[in-house]
C-alpha cells in the first residue's frame, strides 16, 4: 500500500510518500512495524494520540482494520480555516 506523511510527520520521517509491503491487520500494527524500522519513524510515531490517520482519504482511528486499504496517511491534527 501507499503510505503518505504530511506536515511535521513528513519532515520527521523525511519523505512524503512510500510504498510499504505489510501484513499488518490494523493501523496500530502498521505503526508498530514502521517504528521497528528506524529511529526517524519512532520519533514521528512517539505519541500517536497527537496524530491523525486516514485510510483511502477518509479519517479513521488507529485501531481500524487495513483490509483492502490502498492508501494510508499519517498527519498531525489539522489546522485549516
Amino acid at each position: 500500500m501507499d503510505v503518505l506523511y504530511f506536515a511535521w510527520v513528513r519532515e520527521r520521517i523525511g519523505l512524503p510518500k512510500e510504498r510499504v509491503e505489510t501484513s499488518a491487520t490494523t493501523v496500530n500494527d502498521l505503526v508498530a512495524e514502521l517504528i521497528a524500522r528506524e529511529e526517524r519513524y519512532a520519533a514521528a510515531f512517539a505519541d500517536t494520540s497527537a496524530l491523525r490517520v486516514a485510510i483511502d482519504q477518509e479519517l479513521t482511528d488507529f485501531d481500524a482494520p487495513l483490509a483492502g486499504a490502498r492508501e494510508v496517511a499519517f498527519f498531525p491534527p489539522m489546522t485549516g480555516g
Binding site: F6, A7, A54, L59, F75, P76, P77, M78, T79, G80, G81
Partner: peptide, 11 residues
C-alpha cells in the same frame, strides 16, 4: 469543521 477536519496544515 473546516478548522479541524479539512486536511490543511499551516506553517
Amino acid at each position: 469543521y473546516l478548522k479541524s477536519r479539512a486536511p490543511f496544515w499551516k506553517k
